[in-house]
């Protein structure tokens, strides 16, 4: 599971009002290189919740992102920033671990890189 996906996931348990972001519990992180695409990064940048992304990257062991979201103009000129953004967003995978609902503490397991967001009957 990439940090892009983490940034798009919320706790879906019935009654939970503050289900984002899910806290990450890391057992295993893997890195997989993919080709950088500047258009994708520019298109997705405004949709990213930066604080959740920054915190998630730190938990995943990557500490090179700025704590504050940069101005969008940075994406036009700063290749170094684009490379870091790309790496944290798309190349770091949570392979084993869990996503934890910030409100209830319910754990959604992540096995072989796949989050299981299925709910039990009493959570729907």
């Amino acid at each position: 599971m990439r940090m892009l996906t983490h940034n798009m996931l919320s706790s879906n348990i019935k009654g939970v009002t503050n289900g984002f972001p899910l806290r990450i519990e890391v057992e295993k992180v893997v890195e997989k290189q993919v080709e950088i695409n500047h258009d994708f990064l520019r298109n997705i940048f405004p949709k990213i919740d930066w604080k959740a992304f920054f915190d998630a990257s730190r938990v995943m062991g990557y500490a090179e992102l700025p704590e504050e979201a940069p101005e969008p103009s940075v994406l036009e000129s700063d290749l170094e920033f684009l490379r870091k953004f790309h790496h944290a967003l798309l190349e770091l995978h949570l392979e084993e671990g869990a996503l934890v609902c910030p409100e209830t503490g319910r754990k959604f397991p992540v096995n072989k890189g796949i989050p299981n967001m299925l709910l039990h009957e009493d959570e729907v």
Binding site: L9, S10, F20, D49, I114, P115, N116, M117, L118
Partner: peptide, 12 residues
């Protein structure tokens, strides 16, 4: 993502 339709993704 192992989920029902898009549960967990619908908000973000």
């Amino acid at each position: 993502i192992n989920t029902d339709i898009a549960s967990g993704l619908e908000n973000r």
